[in-house]
Amino acid sequence: MDVLLSLPIVSYFAAPMLTSWSTSINLLFFYMTWTTLVLSHSPLKIELVGTLAVRIVFWLVPALLFLLLDTGVPSLAESIKHYGTPSLPRRHAATLSRQVVFAVVNLALASALQAGISIAAAKFLQRPLFKTSTTLPLPWQIIKHILSLYTAREVLTYYIHRYILHAKGGTIAKLHSQYAHAQKGAAPYAIMLYADHPIPLMLNRLLPVYLPALVIRPHLLTYLLFTILTTIEEMLSMSGYSVVPGIFMGGIARRTASHYASRGKGNYGAWGLLDWINGTSVGKDVIEDIQDEADKHQVQGRGQKAISDTGSMMQDGIDGLQKGRKGRKKRSDE
């Protein structure tokens, strides 16, 4: 518990809400917290407790709140769900309780598997798996590693999902279909993120995120940030809501809903890029999603307005210069 409370990511996001300190003070507070954490706990403990805390805060808690909304106010929930009423969870307390417990057990299994891999890798390498020091990673290094991790994750997610989890006649595919795709013609809800059979779950959720990190071996803070971003993305995409904000996230949620509603006939990637390239998109592809979401948020209209305003300002400036020149010429003639 002391590790969880001393996580610098938690304190970093909590500080602005609790105080009115400036950004510089927040960064200093963040650095001091991280330094204290590194000096008082082992890298492995920080990695495992930090990852578990991220998944609890950014998946389990929101998923339970969404489940409460879906079952407590179904008339409201169905209006913002892809495919409407069929996408709502069954309002059966025993069934939902078993599903929640199953998801939590799977979360514990994923954490245990990650712990085993991390311990084995650390012993093999004779050093901590992730770079853990009091020196914070540079912004460009963070961006470079995050982009590399996302690229590798997209490739792994697509090919594992398509050729293993949905392979015709495959044993793992049957387990995935039985557990994750039990509902036909419906979008998922967030608790289903970890309510799959453990084997396909580890292949689909843990491996694409953790394996690239094992190869790249970024700073531990970068890995925790990547885990936060992917957990939020997966939680929102699995929510089944049609009101997920953002140009990209709205499309990801829509494609995830189509994947589950079609029982896995397409939309295998996380971001839809490889589905678009390989022609496995179900419904609208990623390009159409971006165009639709951009139109919905009136990006084009705002851009045209900005261009028009800029053009008007430039024209006003030119007119002002011309008037000034005419005035000076008139005075010189006089």
Rank of each mutant, 00 (worst) to 15 (best):
K329H: 10
G72V: 00
K284Y: 12
A195K: 02
Y268D: 04
L113C: 13
G50Y: 02
P43D: 04
I142R: 08
R127E: 11
A294G: 10
K144W: 10
G324L: 09
K184F: 13
G251Y: 03
H176S: 01
S242M: 02
S11C: 03
P198I: 06
T256H: 14
G269D: 06
S177K: 15
H181I: 09
G251Q: 07
P218M: 09
A112W: 04
Y159T: 09
I143F: 15
G317V: 03
A195G: 12
A53P: 00
A94D: 09
R127L: 09
H297E: 12
V38R: 05
M314L: 15
S11I: 02
G317H: 07
H145G: 01
R217V: 02
G283K: 10
L236F: 12
W21T: 09
L156K: 06
L211R: 06
A294D: 00
L64S: 03
A103I: 07
L236Y: 05
G311N: 15
G251M: 05
Q322W: 02
M17R: 11
D285C: 03
L156S: 07
S6C: 10
A63R: 04
Y179W: 15
V61N: 02
V3L: 06
L107P: 05
G317P: 03
S242R: 13
M249C: 02
D292N: 13
S258W: 03
T157A: 12
E288K: 15
K45D: 11
L52Q: 04
V54K: 02
H166S: 03
V243S: 12
A253E: 00
D319E: 14
T36Q: 11
L273A: 13
D309T: 12
I172S: 04
A63D: 01
A173V: 01
S11R: 15
G84Q: 05
I143H: 10
V3R: 06
Y210W: 10
A186L: 08
A213H: 04
I46D: 02
A112F: 07
F102G: 09
S239P: 00
M249N: 07
I290N: 04
I318H: 11
L125H: 10
S6Y: 08
M1A: 12
L125M: 13
D289R: 02
P208E: 06
Y260Q: 13
E334A: 13
I146L: 15
T231C: 07
A213N: 07
T33E: 11
Q141H: 12
S87T: 01
A94L: 14
A120M: 08
Y158S: 08
F226G: 00
H145L: 01
F58K: 01
V10S: 09
L37D: 00
